[in-house]
């Protein structure tokens, strides 16, 4: 079975880039346009890994982490934050909120797949 990725980003460009890369690499790709939609869709999709942007309307990436990790049920699902901020404290904040790792924008396909592999074990 393909590894299911839920990508949450308000930028269509980033979503398309993720979709192109992930589908090419054999992942099953799902997307949401903001944190709210991502959290709402989460249980239906039941993804193997979540990639979320930080800066988003309605519910930001920290909100996604809070809601997904908050109830303790999803403590296992890897959540990668996608961020242009390379700042250490951003990573630390994300990690404290339960992020598994991070992908720094602009990302290349290789580093994205590598990041996914480290948190899901899946090459695809």
């Amino acid at each position: 079975m393909k590894t299911k990725v839920l990508a949450i980003d308000d930028s269509r460009t980033i979503r398309n880039l993720l979709a192109a890369c992930l589908e090419e690499a054999g992942f099953e790709y799902f997307s949401a346009v903001d944190g709210r939609e991502g959290v709402d869709k989460y249980s239906d999709i039941d993804p193997d890994v979540v990639i979320t942007d930080i800066n988003m309307p309605n519910l930001d990436g920290f909100g996604v982490l809070e809601e997904l990790r908050g109830d303790g049920i999803n403590s296992k699902v890897p959540i990668l934050v996608l961020t242009t901020e390379s700042a250490a404290d951003m990573k630390a904040r994300a990690r404290a909120a339960g992020a598994t790792g991070w992908i720094t924008k602009p990302f290349d396909d290789e580093s994205l797949i590598f990041a996914l592999k480290r948190v899901t074990g899946a090459a695809a």
């Binding site: 890897p78 598994t100 590598f114 592999k117 899901t120």
Partner: peptide, 13 residues
Amino acid sequence: YATGNEPYFLFQA
């Protein structure tokens, strides 16, 4: 373990 990181996957990588 609170961050969803899993040693097994790291070893796989």
